[in-house]
Design a binder for these strands. Sequence first.
RNA 1: GGCGACGUGGUGAAGUGGUUCAACACGGAGGUCUGCAAAACCUCUAUUCAGCGGUUCGAAUCCGCUCGUCGCCUCCA
Length: 464
Amino acid sequence: MTDTLSGQTRPLVPLEPGHVRIYSCGPTVYGPAHIGNFRSFLFADLLVRYLRWRGLRVTWVMNVTDVDDKIIRGAAEAGTTIEALADRWLERFTEDADALRMTRPDILPRATRHIEPMATLVRTLLERGHAYRTEDGSIFFRIASWPAYGALARIDPDQLRVGERVEADEYGKGDVRDFARWKGPKPGEPVWESEIGPGRPGWHVECSAMSMQYLGASFDIHTGGVDLIFPHHEDEIAQSEAATGQRFVGTWLHCAHLRLGGAKMAKSTGNIHRVVELLDAGVSARALRYALLAVHYRQAIDYTDASLTAAGAAVARLDALVAALEAYAEDRPDAADLSGLLHAARTDFVAALDDDLNISAALAAVFELVREVNRRIADRGLSTGDATTILDFLRDLDRVLAILPDATESLPAGAHALLDAREAARMSRDWAASDRLRDELATLGVAVEDTRDGQRWRIVGGGA
RNA sequence: GGCGACGUGGUGAAGUGGUUCAACACGGAGGUCUGCAAAACCUCUAUUCAGCGGUUCGAAUCCGCUCGUCGCCUCCA
């Protein structure tokens, strides 16, 4: 894996053999996440799925930021509490994540429920002289006290354009580049009483406190988008290591941006798409997952209608093969070289993902197998048992990819009767009726194809 | 102004010194199969890897310069 801090690509060696601890920066629940956010979550999902598929135990923590300026503002505007607002959008996040087949993190800690560990962390920083208190009760991290500051982002603190980042209300800071750990009480803002006085936590401190609470002072992998490298992750390192004296994270993984219209997809720019809106517009969730996942994580993706169409076509190609294998029946001996073929595909798949999660090469291995299997289906060169073996093999790989149709995918109401009627019409060579029934099924989203194994169907378009 | 990433066919994209290295996917053209269709398969679709110069027996792959695109330095996945 390629570590942002060292800039090196090196083997992942978990602190505890066989157990990988991963922390991912999650959503701020002040509104629906956009698909650019989900790109980074799905990249972490791929990582987690792959490590587990490889037999490693994984503990995956993803934070939920449920208190910040935007949530406070949003709640005030909506005339509700920050709790209610966060609940609402966290629910939406979960729905979107499920639709995209994202693995549920083992723990989804919410910031407002971890005030105590944050306060304790800040107190330690105060005691060690890495933080200081200002007149309004806020507490800042003193960058000058941490010489390694800037190492992750390869930034020289002296070179920052400091003039542009001074916030109007932050008088009293010792240095304008120091960042807030704890924000003093203000009218109209939620306040927590804590061992360091009243106030609310700053953003960076929540990830440090919660990651260390669940994963320990040192853990293996921390993920996020490249835009979090500075200052968010830089600050996390500084305050965590200043507090514990231990190395915070073994490997930093950052995924590149999803772009739309040549620019990074971002709420502030307005060039965003949201998951439910795309699904409501008829986009297939699996195609969307494929589009967000099929490019290497350190490579920017340009999101376009064409990219989504191409992803849909690639997924349909897999669907067609699965349908063909499920329908396939041929009474003949098992193919002698099948296990060798599958073994080779698996070897290529593993080699690709072992290499810094090279998903493109892994998919290439899958599609090479797809072509070969299609060839053999056309040649009737497989036994019925072979077809089952291949299906099992593909479903096993799909524990990593999660793009195949559900095994339980079911027909829409009424489709069964239409299929039976069409089968009967075909038996009596009534082509007109057969074609009419095929059209009817198409309007239900069921594609019917005629093969030597009889007619077979698959669900097309939106939905699953 | 500082720091960094990237530039491969019609499109997306792997490949980071030689041996089928120009994968794979999408799209396009032709063909096979089929009652028709769909799917699938076969053939073709980059003598070339932004441009220029250099290193080398040999470079898309290393070095330098130029041009271009994007990102971070501010909330941000």
